[in-house]
Design a protein around this nucleic acid. Structure first.
Length: 293
DNA sequence: CAACCGTGGAC
DNA sequence: TGTCCAAGGTT
């Protein structure tokens, strides 16, 4: 028994954070919204926006009826705004083809825009109680330590990671769902990336601790640069457009990135290609879908 | 598979 | 504006 399910379950019941999307009565659509928002964005920043979205767009058809610009403004500074666009597109598919509900089948979920290996199974598990492995960065780290005795997980491989966790998954649906939630919670609050708090860990048989907490041996993982990248420029351009209720002149956008006009133009072009920004007939720029909805 | 897709908080 | 990291997905 590599991971003591009973101990983990008890720990989760006692220690889990009271996150709004974990409360009773939360719908599949609301779970899906939370999962998309939580892709690479911390819980603390997601929570207030999620509460607002639940009120504003309680069902997929409500969101589908909104314009992209409204969605992008409501997304605010959560980052990676293409996620908001995909969720909007997803809402349209759900409203048109799935009876305004989030499907339960993993394969169907995987076909939806912005829904990948993690999100599909997170919805299947947390919204519908299915027994499927749910593998995010927290789970990968906890399993790497507790089971494999390594400080850090290897490079992500969906097939291998899913099989890895499938092998640990409890038999019954209910226990499997709690197991996955607990593994994620443990990785998020105790078995963290930087400074794991082993003194607070409920697991008594962690392979990494047993091995004396050896340091990561392999090559250090490359951390993404941000300063000076197109990503930073895109962020600055989007910030200007989010905050303006009228289309913006080209010169106003030029001001956000003076050091490299070529890079600025490339960033703006990519935003147009991505469908985040549109150009008006008179040559100004605005969030895509301004005036729609 | 590796690179790219924002943003802000903790160190 | 240094580094690392955060419930990933798409190409």
């Amino acid at each position: 028994m590599p991971v003591d399910t009973t101990v983990l379950q008890r720990w989760y019941a006692a220690e889990a954070r009271d996150l709004p999307w974990r409360r009773d009565g939360v719908t599949g659509w609301q779970i899906l919204m939370s999962e998309v928002m939580l892709q690479q964005t911390p819980v603390a920043r997601v929570a207030p926006i999620w509460e607002e979205w639940v009120r504003r767009w309680p069902v997929p058809s409500a969101m589908a009826a909104a314009g992209r610009a409204d969605i992008l403004r409501a997304w605010g500074k959560l980052g990676y705004p293409r996620r908001a666009l995909r969720l909007h597109e997803c809402a349209g598919v759900l409203a048109a083809d799935h009876g305004d509900r989030v499907p339960e089948d993993v394969a169907v979920l995987l076909s939806l825009p912005g829904v990948g290996a993690y999100t599909a199974r997170a919805v299947a598990c947390f919204a519908y109680g299915q027994r499927v492995p749910v593998v995010d960065t927290n789970v990968r780290r906890v399993v790497a330590r507790a089971v494999h005795g390594r400080a850090e997980p290897g490079n992500p491989s969906t097939t291998r990671d899913l099989a890895d966790v499938e092998a640990l998954l409890p038999r019954t649906r209910a226990r499997a769902a709690t197991f996955s939630a607990a593994l994620m919670e443990l990785g998020a609050t105790v078995c963290t990336a930087r400074t794991p708090d082993c003194g607070r860990c409920p697991l008594s048989n962690c392979a990494w601790v047993d091995a004396g907490r050896p340091a990561h041996d392999g090559p250090a993982k490359r951390v993404q640069k941000f300063a000076g990248t197109d990503r930073q420029v895109r962020g600055k351009l989007m910030a200007v457009l989010r905050e303006s209720d009228t289309p913006v002149e080209r010169q106003a956008l030029d001001l956000v990135w003076l050091s490299d006009p070529g890079q600025r133009d490339r960033a703006l072009h990519s935003l147009l290609v991505d469908g985040l920004v549109e150009q008006t007939d008179d040559g100004r720029f605005a969030l895509a879908g301004e005036g729609n909805g």
